[in-house]
Each structure stands twice: as C-alpha cells, then as structure tokens.
Amino acid sequence: MNTTTTPGPSIELQALTKQFGSFTAVNDLSVGIERGGVVGLLGPNGAGKSTTIRMLLGLIAPTSGSGRVLGHDVTRPSAYMHRVGALVEAPVFYPKLSGRDNLRNLAVLAGAGDERIDEVLDIVDLTGRDTDPAGDYSLGMKQRLGIAASLLKDPELVILDEPTNGLDPAGIVEIRELLIRLGQSGKTIIVSSHLLAEIQAACDRLVIINRGSLVFEGPTHELLDRSRNELVLVPESRNDMSKLAALLDDKGIPFTTNGVGLRAPDATAESAFVNRLAFEHGVTLRELRVDVEDLEDVFLRLTNTKETT
C-alpha cells in the first residue's frame, strides 16, 4: 500500500527534551536510527521511553530540541504518520467486537481494505481466531492484535511500546518471534521494553535511556563489549578479610568489598598471582572465581538499577 520512501535514517533526534512542569521526562536526547531491522528502545520504568515514543508519534510536543521521522519534522506528524504504524502502551479494543471487526474499524481510519486485514491477521498468526470477540482473547493475542493494527497501513516504520508487558514467558516468546519476522521484512521496527532479556534476541541495535538521557546506542553485540569481568575472592575465614584487602592494596590492585568477599574488576587475568599471594601470606581462599557480566547485568548497571552485591 505504502511505497513512498525517502532516503536517510528512520529517526534522527537532536537534543530532544520534554518537560512536564518541573519534571524532565526526556533530557537532551540525541540519537539516530537507521532504516531496517529491529531496534530495542530500552530503559527502566520511568526512563522516558514512552514519552520519547509519544513525541515521535506527534502525541506530545517537544519542549525543546528537534527531531525528524522518515525525513520529516517531528512537530509535523501529518507529514509522515501515514508511513508509521504504532502500538502505544496496552492495545485498546472493543471487547464485544471480534478481532476482525476491531481491525476493520481501524482500517477505515488507515484507509485499508479487507485484503490488508487478512494479511495482517496472517502476519500475527490470528487467522482462525479473528471472528472471536476481542474480549475473549488472551493477553498475548490482544498484543498480537495490537501489532496487527499497527501494520494496517503497511508502514515503513513500526513503533511498539512495551509489547511484551504483562505477558507470560510463552507470550513473550511469541512476540519475540513475531518481531524477528517483522524485522526480516525490511521494515524498521522500534520496540521498547524495560526488560532487555525479553527482546534482546530480536534486536539488531539497542538504544538505552535512563532518566530521560541516552546511556547507550549501538549494535547489540557492542553492549557485550562493555561487560565487566570481576575477580571474586572469598577467604575461608572472615578474619582474613582485612589481611587480604591489605595485600591487594599493597600490590595496587583496586577492589571493592561487600562484607563477604572482595571484588577486583581489573584482576581477572591475575587470579593465579592473587591466589599465590594469599597462600604465601597464610590466607586460604574458599572461593576464587571470575564473574562474567552478562548483557542484562550491563543493562542494569548502565541504567543504575542493579543491586549492589
């Protein structure tokens, strides 16, 4: 249906800011998202993801800064929204109407016909259940119906706000597989979530924001490069903690302590040396291991939501 394309990135934001009174929901956000693939917009609850998405969709006006969506100014949504599909927060449907009739109603707005309704129902794998009342759908089916609604215009850019919210593990897997399929179709899919693990496998790139500001932007694998490995040392006797700390201090090895053991982030390659050092000074180590930070840990650390251990 929609064949108009313009060159350039899908989304370019320059110092985009949104304030609600004295509260800054999005602060000086600058980010560029290229066309194609699945991009994860991540951040903890209240990070500013939904506010950013609403600005992209023209639902709220930026306080300052600028943005372009598919080459058009973000303050003129009528110039590009016919090429954008979106699911903003929980999908809302008329419970007594069937899934198909709910889509038909939205298709009137989108200027889409019955053929497109069949196509999107097929994409989200709801064919066969389309005549059931939407009120009888499971949460996962409602989310899929919401995604179907966002695809009615056959958009170049699809923005899905927390599509896995409230889903059980099976539902999350369903949505993740759907995102991968959509990403392979050539569209640009932007999917927000507060849980990296839920959408990580589907995302080619990640944009992580926290407290309204950008903390990471790049390919998913690049986030792994930011992982920190730590050497964990736990002495057999708690009384040896201070002795062990003094030994590391003496050798210029930085560390932190949590009362049970010591964590030395820059000493992962020196485990043998540290082990010998402790032994030579009469400290028996109950544990000596390297803690490898996984992607979720990096995400939590970047967004300052990881509990200190």
Binding site: L57, P77, M81, V88, V92, L109
Partner: peptide
Amino acid sequence: ERGTIRQLLVGEPR
C-alpha cells in the same frame, strides 16, 4: 478514558 485517543491519532494525526 479508554485510551483509544492514541489509536485515533496514530491513524489520523491531523
């Protein structure tokens, strides 16, 4: 109240 305003404006931004 229902949140359908979002859907409406995504469908028709004018």
